[in-house]
Structures are given as C-alpha cells and as structure tokens.
C-alpha cells in the first residue's frame, strides 16, 4: 500500500506521518499515535465509541481515513481535559453518574461537546436527540443526559 505524507494537528500538537491510504483514522489514532482513549465498538459507524472532533465537529473515526485528515485539527478525549484539570463535561459526567464501564464514554464526551457547541441550552429531548449517534449499554443514558444538562446550565455550553 503506497504511503501518504500527512501533516495535521492532534490535541494541539503538530503531527507528521506517513500512512497507507487504507489506514482508518481510528487505527491511526490508536495504533500509530497510541491515543487509545478513542475506542472501537462496531467499526460500522453505529455505536459512536470512536467519535472524535475534526476541526471542532464530531466525526466517527472508524468511518474516516487518516489520509483525509491532512491539514485538519483533531481532538480526542486525551485532548479534552486531563487529571486535575477536567473539562466541565468530564467533571459533570463524574458528578452525575454519566459513566460506568467507561468504554463508550470518550465517544459520548465528544458528541456532547459537539452538541453543546451547536445548541448551548438544549432541553432534555434535544440532548437525547443529540446523542442519537452513540450507544451506551450501562447507564440507561440518565446520568449522561443529566451531566450534559448541568454542564449547559452552568454556562459551559458554548
């Protein structure tokens, strides 16, 4: 497979890479950059565990090719916040019981960032609609919805 030169920004850092044309973005992030916070749940774009932000918009990295990312800016869960300086959404997921096994969580966080960017003050129905691309098997969604609502109410929506 022929290689492609790639230059992009991942979590604020410039990355130069040489990738085969069939390299999925999810593989590139997990296997080449060791950013294993991005998860693979179905690799068909249905479960949302692999969601990342590309130029600020939520994208399913299992349906994207790494070569499409030249010149783009990617944020994964590792770039959202860190221990001791959690993003308001991360903090609220913890406060409201928005996660259990943690596997779908990075994808939900990315979807929630995108949701609040588009709609800083969503009602519950809009939150649930905004999460329609993500599956969680543990929480029944209640803690996730509560966390996003309280993040918005605290004015961290935009």
């Amino acid at each position: 497979m022929s290689g492609h030169k790639l230059s992009l920004v991942v979590n604020g850092e410039r990355v130069e890479a040489d990738v085969p044309s069939n390299r999925l973005l999810s593989e590139f992030l997990r296997d080449d950059l060791a950013l294993t916070g991005t998860k693979r749940g179905c690799e068909t774009g249905v479960c949302g565990a692999c969601s990342v932000l590309v130029d600020g918009d939520v994208v399913k990295s299992c349906l994207s090719l790494a070569v499409q990312m030249n010149g783009r800016e990617i944020t994964t869960v590792e770039g959202l916040g860190r221990v001791g300086a959690l993003h308001p959404l991360q903090q609220q997921f913890m406060e409201k019981g928005g996660l259990q096994c943690g596997y779908c969580t990075p994808g939900f966080l990315m979807a929630a960032v995108d949701l609040l960017k588009r709609n800083p003050n969503p009602d519950d129905a809009e939150i649930r609609e905004g999460l329609s691309g993500n599956l969680c098997r543990c929480t029944g969604y209640q803690g996730i919805v509560d966390a996003i609502r309280s993040t918005a109410e605290a004015g961290h929506g935009a």
Partner: peptide, 15 residues
Amino acid sequence: KRREDVRFLTGAGNY
C-alpha cells in the same frame, strides 16, 4: 464520586 471515572474520562483506561 467514582475514583475510576477519572481514568475513563481522560482516555487513560487500560482495556
């Protein structure tokens, strides 16, 4: 609050 959440929320889990 769940202490395991911190690693899951920051992508630092080890699955």
